[in-house]
Nucleic acid binder design. Sequence first.
DNA 1: TGCTTGATTAACT
DNA 2: GTTAATCAAGCAC
Length: 182
Amino acid sequence: MNAWDILEQDAPLVAPLLLGWQLVHDTAEGRTAGIIIETEAYHQDDPASHSFNGVNNRNAPMFGPAGHAYVYRSYGMHWCMNVVTGNSGFGQGVLIRALFPTEGIPLMEKRRGRRDHLCSGPGKLTQAMDISHIHNGHDLREPPLFLIPYPSLGYTATPRIGIAKAKEKPWRFVAQETRILA
DNA sequence: TGCTTGATTAACT
DNA sequence: GTTAATCAAGCAC
């Protein structure tokens, strides 16, 4: 099984495996990249998931092929990015909640307008890396926005953040080694 | 056509 | 700990 086949599994299995993968975005301004250190799983059989009530115009990418991006607007002002997992026809994905910045840090600082907390939240990392709705449905194996597989980091599983339903599921995964560096 | 809802962030007290 | 900012999409009428 190659690294990309991992994404064909269910989101709660994939989410911890993505810790340690690198997310890279090349733009005209330059390259930004970071190591994924925090994720959350969302599954069609999960009341907290956008895909729970079936496919619609917003969540359609979650029902598409694994390894593509699902980007949506949150609270009217932020973008959040998911990596779609599982087979087509079943809506699920992994929310990227935090990165450890590795490349293009000055560019991230410029986009964020500050020198700390560059990628320590789902809305922050999309701002730092200039990810938005135009990447919705994009294949994350292809430039300019792509993932580089790495062996998984050690992690801690905890309940998810900022949701109203199914709060008890320990489907948030935080990398142990780098959590302080975010 | 109008109402409701967020998988958030940052700046307050 | 509390709250404002801000808007696309779903869904009820």
